[in-house]
């Protein structure tokens, strides 16, 4: 079963990794450092609400949150059991990692749906 799923999980991993590589530095720099520290003017609540009204923006946010979570799930799963040699826990680790990514994706979908 997992053997058959692996190629698809790898695709999610790759897409998520690419998205994170291109877009996370700028989002993290602005949202986590530049805005809180006042280096740049943060967008107002109203401006952001206006922005997320647009379906393209919401789709963007969904993709940008969900796929990197799968990126994490895949990478972290391998790191855990290769790094710590937890071969007897393979299934448990896989379920926890991909499961967490699925939950995150569901929450993201729900939140963005209600933001409209």
């Amino acid at each position: 079963m997992t053997e058959r799923l692996t190629p698809f999980l790898w695709i999610l991993f790759s897409l998520g990794g690419t998205i994170a590589a291109f877009l996370f530095p700028v989002h993290l720099f602005l949202g986590g450092l530049a805005f809180p520290l006042g280096w740049l003017d943060a967008p107002s609540y109203e401006a952001l609400r206006g922005l997320v009204q647009h379906p393209v923006v919401r789709l963007y946010l969904f993709v940008v949150i969900s796929l990197p979570l799968f990126h994490w799930a895949h990478r972290f799963r391998y790191t855990l059991y290769d790094g710590l040699q937890l071969y007897h826990l393979t299934v448990l680790i896989a379920v926890l990692c991909y499961g967490a990514a699925l939950v995150g994706t569901a929450v993201a979908a729900y939140t963005l749906w209600n933001l409209a």
């Binding site: 190629p7 698809f8 790898w10 695709i11 790759s14």
Partner: peptide, 13 residues
């Protein structure tokens, strides 16, 4: 090889 394998799996899906 992984890329080929992944695309192949996608195609057969």
């Amino acid at each position: 090889f992984k890329l080929t394998g992944a695309l192949d799996a996608l195609k057969s899906l």
